[in-house]
Simulated assay, not measured.
Amino acid sequence: MGTPRLEINHEKIAHNCAFLTQVYAAKKISICAVTKGVCGNIMIAQTLVSTGVTMLADSKVSNLKKMREGGILATFLLIGTPMLSQARSIIKWADISNNSELVVIEELARHACIRGVTHKIILMVEMGDLREGIMPSRLDNMVKKVLKLKGIKLVGIGTNLACFGGIQPSKDKMELLSVIAECIEQKYHISLPYISGGNSANYGWFKSTHDIGKINHLRLGESILLGVDPVNRRPIPNLYTDVFNLVAEVTELKIKPSVPYGKKGQNAFGHILHFPDRGKISRAILGIGLQDVDVSGLKSNLDISILGVGSDHTIIDPQKTNLKIGDEVSFSLNYAALLSAMTSPYVEKINIVSYELEGIL
């Protein structure tokens, strides 16, 4: 197999998804699987659906289109803040979208009427993380206007935490969202099927609370794909954390000085770097760089250290690993590294599928 490559273990994805579905179902919370970290990969989407998940979420309309055209049978949720310019395509490819701007919702309504369909929306509420969301004091006025629109159906409210500001989901925040949902339902005599309390970062809140209130829906990406709690990146019990494996090849191995020599200026990325003087050391180059992956999010199980990175080279100290030219070095990835590797056209994606899944995929 060629390098660089990203090996994807579908059996482990299926296990993580099925396990989390069961865990959250114990408190009557349904999950949707978020595919944005894997760029709407059709085989991964099919693996997720094979576990019984009925809703897939992505931040890119193009990914929803790819999955729908790829024959994936699911309800598709657009979780990226909808762009006004994409209203027409959103109506075509998304069943539901998360929204926070009235002008965008009105444009969605216009295109929904043109197509003769009803588009469902979830209104996002700002709860402190300061990414997308309507301030709670302005939500009632928004609901009042949305309910008057033809072609639009309000099916829920939601919030997003632990993404931009790192604000954690908490008992108080989930209680407040539940109260807001209850007030909307009572005032307008409607039922909201989705009270979407957040994402993978809600795991700690979920495990510690005895009363989930009205929260009945979560959007899970990182915990399914990487098996960790995004709040602290600690492994979640009974989940695989090695679903993805990035493999790079050694292209050069030489003894060189540990400090660059000559008149110093900026490197290729505008940085002036400083290196400790360790004399002459063994230096290896891997055929992978920033065009391929966010190298800062890589971790090897070998005793090596990354000295620096270029657009298509990663320089490492191989220490006592006895690497040779052509040898392969494997890395685990954090979420940022996974996202970049899946996005890069230079990283080959290799699907590892068990016999049990072959008939499904």
Rank of each mutant, 00 (worst) to 15 (best):
M1F: 09
G270K: 01
L246K: 06
L108A: 08
F19P: 00
A74Q: 01
N334F: 05
R219M: 10
L290H: 12
T251Q: 11
R234E: 14
S330G: 07
Q46L: 05
T343K: 14
P193T: 06
A94G: 08
Q86R: 15
D172I: 12
I281A: 03
G165E: 09
H217R: 13
G37W: 00
I285V: 15
L323G: 04
G359A: 10
D317M: 08
G133I: 10
M67A: 03
M1Q: 10
L361R: 02
E185I: 02
I285W: 10
G158Y: 05
W93P: 07
I255K: 15
L273V: 03
G128C: 11
L48G: 05
K254L: 12
C39N: 12
Q86A: 14
D312W: 11
G310E: 15
H217Q: 13
G37D: 03
G80M: 10
V49G: 04
D327K: 07
I285Q: 12
L307D: 13
N160G: 10
T75V: 12
P230H: 10
M67V: 05
R233V: 07
G70H: 08
I236G: 03
I184H: 04
Q319E: 13
I180A: 09
T159Y: 10
E101C: 06
F331M: 11
A341K: 07
D229N: 15
L176K: 14
I184Y: 00
N9L: 06
K256Y: 02
S170R: 09
E222C: 11
V146C: 10
V247I: 14
N232F: 07
E107H: 11
E328N: 14
Y346E: 09
L48V: 01
L48F: 01
D58H: 01
Y355F: 09
E132W: 12
P276R: 05
V179R: 15
G37A: 13
L77P: 00
I31Q: 05
R233Y: 12
L48P: 01
N351T: 02
V295R: 05
I96A: 02
I180W: 07
V250A: 10
L20D: 03
K27F: 09
L218T: 06
L253G: 09
D95E: 06
